[in-house]
Write a protein that binds this DNA or RNA. Sequence first.
DNA 1: TGTACATCAGTGAACGCGCGTTCACTGATGTAC
DNA 2: TGTACATCAGTGAACGCGCGTTCACTGATGTAC
Lengths: 241, 241
Amino acid sequence: MTQTARERARTQITGEIKEEARRQLAAGGAPRLSLRAVARALGMVSSALYRYFPSRDDLLTALIIDAYDSLGAAAEAAVGAAAGGRDGWLACCHAVRGWALAHPHEYALIYGSPVPGYRAPQETVAPAARVPALIGGLLADALQSGGMKRGRPGLVPPHAGGRAAGLPGALRAQAEVVAAAIAPGVPAAVIARALIAWTQLFGMISFELFGQLVGSADPADDFFGYAIGEMADLVGLVAGA
Amino acid sequence: MTQTARERARTQITGEIKEEARRQLAAGGAPRLSLRAVARALGMVSSALYRYFPSRDDLLTALIIDAYDSLGAAAEAAVGAAAGGRDGWLACCHAVRGWALAHPHEYALIYGSPVPGYRAPQETVAPAARVPALIGGLLADALQSGGMKRGRPGLVPPHAGGRAAGLPGALRAQAEVVAAAIAPGVPAAVIARALIAWTQLFGMISFELFGQLVGSADPADDFFGYAIGEMADLVGLVAGA
DNA sequence: TGTACATCAGTGAACGCGCGTTCACTGATGTAC
DNA sequence: TGTACATCAGTGAACGCGCGTTCACTGATGTAC
């Protein structure tokens, strides 16, 4: 309950190490993050860091978890403040993008190419699932409170060639697993489209941050706003509670 | 016209260097690519590589250009063999994904997080534009040959809250620039949705390759097929010529 | 409350490694006459 | 066709740097009696 001075110092310095590491992430990205450079910046000797993190990879893991949690918290706060349904979705998207633009190197750390030689441990899974879980909950809520069209979501008809209305088998099964985990009661067809919306959201943000939109949708604000609206339609989210 | 032995040797060895560099890319990603290691693997002394590439960054640039060209060629071949319109789009998507799965580290090189400290020079711009240009051309062709619905593409209606039918201003202007460059005659509304489809395509592939789909749409084959069909609908592409 | 001991943070030196790049050089290939 | 010179590929040593991690150590903080 009461913390000893040692415990307080430990928490404090652990925080300072991560803070400095984040600064270096911004300077050179994950591959250039160096324990020695972090120690140097903090006026410590490099071996001292091993009192706090048993290896470089453990420091990386801590940064990854923090990044997922920071993003998750930002998104949750935005959704909590929104009216739900379609508004919740839009708020979530804007919060995710806003966080990404504010923390581009932490975004790259969790959504960019995997760091070579690093394998994310189990502990990162739960923080990574916060945004998907948030979206799932939002859909489930919207479905209950009338914020979503019933039946097959969206109104895009099967194309002229005549595609079967159902989902392909594996996708249906996967969607049901997802529904059971994070979106109870939401039909597989809605989940399938939500998966599209989800990958679309991060695809846009990655393209924006990684420079692929230069020469087309850059600056991306209007494009982003338009796209997330289209995704809301696709999923079947309607305005109002 | 006729090549000297020296010229032949130069072309050959330049190729071997890039080949070995690609192998090392697969082993450790771009940040771990090392001139010395490449030279070692080829039985050369590291300084000899400087006869072929003036610096490490120039080797990286060559790999990036090759990757864009390889991807572009694969996509173009697939579209060329398809019936056009919707089929062309689907073929393009499958070709891009197929290439990405076959060359995951080259994909990460061009669509992953930027390599720290590296700035892509102008020469990479044209190769990078091949896939977008291909899609643009495909849309223009489809529009001319009746492979696309006229008028506002797709059938998703404005959401219940009543969104204005038009595109936001900046997006409309950007879409017109894109149309002028790679999709002559294609309306801005179609371009805007094609931008969504394009970011969606690469967003899905990145999520698949970078491990974000584990636990949901994994394996991603059915999800991918479903999503690109939905995108075709969104853009207004119909089956047949 | 005071003392003896255990815990822990931080030091400094070292190990063993790898990197990109430069430079003066040797020897083979190509070119001009 | 043969010779003199220029071009270029590749060598080997060196410069100057950085890295992660280990280890024996000092000295401060915490704990049990």
